[in-house]
Nucleic acid binder design. Structure first.
Length: 905
DNA sequence: CGTCGGCATGGAG
DNA sequence: ACTCCATGCCGAC
């Protein structure tokens, strides 16, 4: 409970007591909760608030079924009734009964809190189901047989009168779950869930039980003050009460589950950005599908509560395997990538707390319980499920897993999955092996579903699904690497997968990068020819800003039509067809045919493409084949993607995904050192890099996207500068000659032209950032916020203009070297021929110029430094040439765990 | 000395 | 500021 209420007054206008400590009451329209004093909160929790304070108010109605009076005209009681289709209202208790009694109940459709009916319904369904069926949101419904001992909870009186749907509903659910058995540490178990509970549930804190799951507790006491237990509002409730907790084993849910079929986990991507119930298993989104059974939804909710890294990503096939012929319903619970410790000899598998509490039986003593788990082959294992007190919390572990792990031949990096066979309530442990396949093998999958749950290799469109939104292929490929990487022995990486998954993901980008040719990358990074960057100085460093041109994105192609006019080819995100647009068209982040306002005839995906594939191939620089292939693929409605563009999309989506993932629980993805002006989803080179100092190290020879970009951009910049310089000189000369006149520098159009990678003026690629500015109109210019990496490491003033072209060239080269040195100090430090060579290679010309003085820290401006820092090898390279250029970052050289970024101890 | 069990620590989120 | 959790550490055996 928020303590911050010292000065607050009870929200109850009939009370107005000063709050010593506030307790949350109902949810207000603002979304906040009413802060109540203990007394009022208790009344509220007991469902007597209106009775107590609003008796004289209007709005009381009787339940059509039981006659109970409900204060329908009050927000406080809003959740206590449902509106009947035929008119009138029914108290929630009756509504639930009705629901449960109905074989195929259509969930009553009460109106939701304020505007959202469905929401309320959904919520209601979930919760009520939990109460009704006795299987709480994700309660432990295991068959008792699973445990050698099964704690029984007696008083399971559903208590939560206040089950209004609230954003934190999930939390509350969890809270509910948790609140069952009580015990030793109850007091402390108020960890997160407790807090959640507070949200509005307010279970008696005193009664928060260990593992909540067990009981849907719905315990009676009112929370904090240990108020005298009161009949819960739903006290007479039905069935519900009796079935909570472990006892509820083969609860009705099972059937329900089957009915709903929702459980069937779908390899769908995790929660779509931004909201949605995670249901990553499809279970969620249930809003619509789930009318029959709330449980799955509840599961989904709980899952939501879990960090994404624990979301089960089991495929249907796996599930099938698990359920075998029995046809039983299998509910994926969670999965975890084995850490070094988990896979080590100790034989302890650290269980994610929330998972343990949500899906495993409640345990009240550190000794825990023996837990029977079946592996995918049907073999049963007995583990000790226990916990250690850890900081006021608990740390759950499964002990004795070594034999099982060994039998499955798992190692760190592999993933174990936990599912539940509903009918029997059995826990099933499957696994997915991290691939040890060579990183280069991009065809495979990274994570092999092994036996465990037999996997067929079917691609998981889900997995870090988030990661590879659009392209299974690239996604898989990336995953593969991921897997390869994670088969590590590098605990860091192991751990990376989860919360640190971000890093892994980023590393995965490398994989994607591998799919980019230099040209592709270049093209993708090329600002449109006719965009004039504005120069912004930040911290004394100049940055190019493009008002309307993203750096990364779905490419468009500048070309000239047969009339000689400049045009722009842009590709529809949906159908992949290319559409001809005016050259100055500014496309929104995600552009589809439907937005083709320039050519209404082709403003639909069904319209044929003007370009033939051949033409397209001509048009596209290098990667086009893929592109046309993609179109083919698109035509076939398949999702094959092997290509840079997709990869970039994936990156973009990844970024977005990551952003969104933060929503529920995972802070795991927030921008850290990204440029503050970048937006979520920004895929510019800055943003796609891991936070400073972290992430993969790049070698000098690294050909990854980022490195290429940096290098190329630098070159571009330098060339551009050089041109300016020469113009200036010319100008000066002229001035000297003519004695005056100043011509402002020419606009970059032609300059850019000059530097376009392709060297083919008509093929310059304009980048249309599809994801960057999602949802934003072009006018918003989200891109304005992007830093152009063509920044120059040195400022203008620092450049002493040469007077001849060779001088300029040298200047450029030196600058570039200088820049490179920032990246690869070893070059500077050792001056080894080897490095020199590399340098030359990069600079693409021979010079004997000694390395520019390395103006290290002092002269590198912060932002730039920060950027450079993203190449961790800066400063600690010690090697020579990395032959694996192609693999670039993908560490063949797997950075030694300790040394690498582990964040320093 | 090796292993195990349990707790403590501290990085990461 | 706080929780989670991977792993380190240490005592017991």
């Amino acid at each position: 409970m928020s303590s911050s209420s010292a000065t607050k007054v009870c929200f109850n206008s009939n009370c107005n007591d000063v709050l010593e400590r506030s307790r949350k009451g109902w949810r207000r329209r603002t979304g906040d909760y009413a802060d109540l004093c203990d007394r009022c909160a208790s009344a509220y929790e007991e469902g007597k608030f209106c009775e107590t304070f609003h008796l004289a108010a209007s709005g009381w109605r009787c339940c059509e079924s039981c006659g109970k009076q409900i204060h329908c005209g009050c927000i406080v009681s809003f959740h206590m009734f449902v509106l009947l289709d035929a008119g009138g209202i029914e108290c929630i208790t009756c509504a639930r009964k009705g629901f449960i009694l109905t074989p195929n109940p259509a969930w009553p459709t009460p109106s939701h809190f304020l505007p959202l009916l469905p929401e309320r319904i959904k919520d209601l369904s979930a919760k009520s189901w939990c109460q009704i069926a006795g299987s709480g949101p994700v309660p432990w419904r295991q068959a008792p047989s699973l445990f050698s001992s099964s704690p029984s909870h007696s008083d399971l009186q559903p208590k939560m009168p206040f089950e209004v749907d609230i954003p934190s509903g999930i939390d509350r659910l969890i809270g509910i779950e948790k609140s069952s058995a009580s015990s030793l540490e109850k007091n402390k178990v108020e960890d997160s869930s407790e807090r959640l509970v507070n949200g509005s549930l307010k279970l008696g804190s005193s009664e928060i039980h260990d593992n909540g799951n067990a009981g849907i507790n719905c315990v009676e006491e009112a929370k904090p003050c240990g108020k005298v237990p009161q009949k819960s509002f739903f006290s007479k409730n039905d069935t519900s009460t009796s079935q909570f907790g472990l006892a509820g084993s083969a609860s009705p849910n099972d059937d329900q589950t089957k009915l709903s079929g929702i459980h069937a986990p779908r390899p769908t991507p995790p929660p779509p950005i931004g909201k949605q119930f995670c249901g990553h298993n499809g279970a969620d989104s249930s809003g619509e599908t789930q009318t029959l059974n709330a449980r799955p939804q509840a599961d989904a909710r709980v899952r939501n509560q879990l960090l994404p890294r624990y979301w089960p990503r089991i495929t249907d096939q796996e599930l099938q395997k698990i359920s075998g012929d029995s046809n039983s319903v299998v509910t994926p619970l969670f999965e975890k990538m084995l850490s070094a410790s988990d896979a080590g000899k100790i034989g302890r598998l650290v269980l994610p707390k929330k998972c343990a509490e949500a899906y495993f039986p409640a345990i009240y003593h550190p000794e825990g319980l023996p837990l029977k788990v079946q592996d995918s082959k049907g073999k049963e294992w007995m583990f000790q499920f226990r916990f250690w007190p850890n900081n006021n919390s608990r740390m759950y572990v499964l002990e004795g897993i070594t034999p099982c792990i060994q039998s499955m031949q798992l190692q760190a990096g592999d993933i174990v999955t936990f599912s539940r066979i509903e009918a029997e309530g059995k826990l099933v442990m499957g696994f997915r092996k991290a691939t040890t396949a060579p990183p280069s093998n991009q065809g495979g999958e990274n994570v092999n579903a092994c036996n465990g749950v037999g996997m067929s290799g079917e691609a998981y469109s889900s997995d870090p699904a988030s990661l590879w939104p659009k392209s299974d292929k690239s996604g898989n490929a990336a995953k593969e690497v991921l897997g390869a990487k994670s088969s590590f022995h590098n605990k860091r990486k192991t751990s990376t997968s989860g919360s640190k998954s971000k890093r892994l993901r980023i590393e995965n980008e490398d994989l994607i990068k591998l799919k980019l040719t230099r040209e592709q990358a270049q093209g993708l990074l090329q600002p449109p020819p006719n965009r004039v960057p504005s120069i912004v100085v930040i911290d004394a460093v100049e940055f190019e800003e493009y008002e309307d041109a993203p750096i990364f994105g779905r490419p468009t192609i500048f070309a000239t039509d047969h009339m000689g006019r400049e045009i722009l080819w842009a590709q529809c995100e949906d159908c992949f067809k290319w559409r001809k647009l005016p050259a100055d068209a500014l496309l929104p982040s995600r552009w589809t045919c439907s937005e083709n306002s320039w050519d209404l005839e082709r403003s639909s995906c069904s319209a044929a493409q003007e370009l033939t594939n051949e033409q397209l191939e001509d048009l596209l620089p290098t990667c086009n084949q893929v592109d046309s292939e993609k179109m083919e693929v698109a035509k076939q409605d398949s999702e094959q993607v092997e290509e840079a563009l997709e990869g970039l999309d994936a990156l973009a989506n990844l970024a977005i995904q990551e952003e969104s993932e933060t929503l529920p629980a995972s802070p795991s993805s927030q921008a850290t050192t990204r440029h503050p002006r970048h937006r979520p989803g920004c895929t510019c080179i800055v943003c796609i890099q891991p936070p400073s100092g972290k992430g993969p190290k790049h070698k000098q020879t690294c050909a990854c996207n980022v490195c290429l970009t940096v290098k190329r951009r630098f070159q571009t910049q330098m060339l551009r500068r050089e041109k300016k310089q020469s113009e200036k000189e010319a100008e000066n000369a002229r001035q000297k000659q003519h004695g005056n006149q100043y011509f402002p520098g020419k606009l970059p159009d032609d300059e850019i032209e000059l530097f376009t990678n392709t060297g083919n003026g008509s093929q310059n690629q304009k980048i249309v950032n599809c994801e960057d500015c999602d949802g934003m109109g072009p006018s918003v210019s989200p891109l304005k916020s992007q830093i152009d990496l063509n920044i120059q490491p040195e400022r203008d003033e620092e450049l002493s203009p040469g007077s001849d072209s060779s001088g300029r060239m040298r200047l450029i080269q030196e600058s570039y070297k200088h820049y490179l040195m920032q990246l690869f100090p070893s070059i500077n430090n050792r001056n080894s021929p080897h490095d020199q060579t590399q340098l030359r290679g990069l600079v693409s010309s021979d010079t004997n110029t000694p390395p520019a003085t390395s103006s290290t820290d002092s002269s590198i401006h912060e932002p730039y430094k920060r950027y450079l820092m993203q190449f961790p090898n800066v400063g600690n390279r010690n090697s020579a040439h990395d032959p694996t250029q192609l693999h670039g970052v993908v560490p063949s050289d797997t950075n030694p765990p300790p040394a690498s970024s582990s964040g320093a101890k």
